[in-house]
Design a protein around this nucleic acid. Sequence first.
DNA 1: AATCTATATTCAAATATTCGAATATATTAT
DNA 2: ATAATATATTCGAATATTTGAATATAGATT
Lengths: 113, 113
Amino acid sequence: MPDSLRQFKADIFQALAHPTRIAILELLSGGELAAGALIEKLGMEQANVSQHLAVLRAKQIVVNRKAGNQVFYSARDPIIFEVLALMRTYFHKQLQETLGMLSEMDAPAEKAP
Amino acid sequence: MPDSLRQFKADIFQALAHPTRIAILELLSGGELAAGALIEKLGMEQANVSQHLAVLRAKQIVVNRKAGNQVFYSARDPIIFEVLALMRTYFHKQLQETLGMLSEMDAPAEKAP
DNA sequence: AATCTATATTCAAATATTCGAATATATTAT
DNA sequence: ATAATATATTCGAATATTTGAATATAGATT
């Protein structure tokens, strides 16, 4: 695989690597939202949200549409939501494994029945 | 969604957000490999690769197995390869769109003259 | 035109990441 | 015990990211 593709992937992952930006994308999974709506739902500083939106825009993960006073954001490609959904599965599997390990620590050894 | 889950996802994405670490995972998609094999195939500094492996280990994306002199690495959960595969799809779609836009720029205007 | 509203950008400080160089550790071989 | 091999860690410099504060812009309203 060409290194440019790896760099591209790394850039996308980097853009996703912040809880606020993940929250933004989750909010957008229901459809487009105005920047103001995002700010309100996130309960964060306007400037801060705007900066995170800029990161997502720079990587073309979201696109925006101006309507008068407002700017509406939406995911450029819904496939990004699939990536997030896969991550949720990943998290749950890992959580289960961890819980399993914990319960094994309680129980007496019972390997190979 | 709880913020802890978002932080977890962000952490995983952060760990994936480097071309070298993506290359490592791609190499591991064929099965486990010794650190030395990774270093050789990547053609990078030993210390550098080791540091990237430490990042992947810290996030439990890879696990390792010591065998005598060597340390063998493998992906903890192959679902991570699905994430990478989805990213490949994402890339291709975006590339196609970009190419489409470029060819439209060549062609004579055909939208609202 | 003055002002209000919604959003974006700039700046600087704090923090985190990346890298190469040097060093440390653990296992095997002599 | 010494040396060789495989891998990991530490350190410091360079670079990038994140944040809040302040400021800028663009469209709407008066």
